[in-house]
């Protein structure tokens, strides 16, 4: 039995003979906020999708609370997913549903909550992310990017998950709105003891919301440490990435 909330052991994933994840190992302890940084195309999103069950790794094990969650039947997988919240890069809100219906979707579908009760809960969660009742009756297409992220965050936490994934939570937002989202993440995650795994390119966000930062390169974790250690890291990949240098061991495909 392990004490890790999430553990990935020797994860491999190929796409058309291109190996994206090459024996990745990762451990996240309960209540920890881990941020994974890395260049585009290094397999960060694939990693999260493998844990979520949207993709299946070719090889390896994924353990949540010590139990292997790969190859589970649909209903067992959906029980695991009830413990998990996810904020997608572009929020991925359902266009055809109003804001409050988006937020309470999981409550109504998996928890079988009735509409009135679900709406009440949705309004409370929306208030938590700084959105009022007026917004709850709008459709996602009527919201700005920042508001969509907030609604996405509200949807991710509405079910009181034990684990939350954030896929590029601040991408496409202005610096002020990005900081607002960072604060909301800290408030929702750190203060409630939720285990969080985020992927981002935004170093300000990574430093602010993480307990630990890990760098993914060519399908493996090449560095891991506390946020205050990253600026003094001697790892060449980390140095190149945080300084944004074109020259270095990381070769970008142009």
């Amino acid at each position: 039995m392990t004490n890790n909330k999430i553990q990935l052991i020797n994860i491999h994933k190929n796409f058309n003979n291109k190996e994206v994840l090459k024996g990745l190992d990762l451990e996240i302890i309960p209540g920890e906020s881990l941020v994974i940084i890395g260049g585009s195309g290094t397999g960060k999103s694939v990693l999260i999708k493998c844990i979520l069950g949207i993709m299946t790794p070719d090889k390896g094990e994924i353990l949540i609370d010590g139990k292997n969650i790969l190859n589970l039947k649909d209903y067992k997988r959906s029980i695991i997913n009830q413990k998990i919240g996810m904020l997608f890069q572009n929020a991925a809100l359902f266009d055809s549903l109003m804001v409050w219906e988006n937020v309470s979707f999981g409550l109504m579908q998996s928890n079988k909550m009735n509409r009135d009760e679900a709406k009440g809960t949705a309004l409370k969660v929306l208030k938590k992310v700084g959105l009022n009742e007026k917004v709850s009756a709008l459709y996602p297409s009527e919201l700005s990017g920042g508001m969509q992220k907030r609604v996405g965050l509200a949807r991710a936490i509405a079910n009181s998950p034990e684990i939350i994934f954030f896929d590029e939570p601040t991408t496409g937002l202005d610096p002020i709105m990005a900081d607002v989202i960072n604060d909301l993440i800290i408030e929702c995650v750190k203060d409630q003891g939720i285990t969080a795994l985020s992927i981002t390119h935004d170093m300000n966000s990574a430093r602010k919301i993480s307990d630990r930062i890990a760098m993914l390169h060519e399908g493996r974790i090449v560095w891991s440490g506390r946020p205050n250690e990253i600026d003094n890291s001697k790892n060449q990949y980390v140095v190149q990435f945080i300084n944004g240098n074109a020259s270095g061991p990381i070769k970008m495909q142009i």
């Binding site: 999708k49 069950g53 029980i79 997913n81 998990i84 997608f88 991925a92």
Partner: peptide, 18 residues
């Protein structure tokens, strides 16, 4: 198709909905 490319279908799965 729009739901697929905007990750709405992935979001359904994460919300325990087939």
């Amino acid at each position: 198709g729009t739901m697929r490319v905007t990750e709405q279908i992935d979001a359904l799965s994460t919300l325990s909905t087939n």
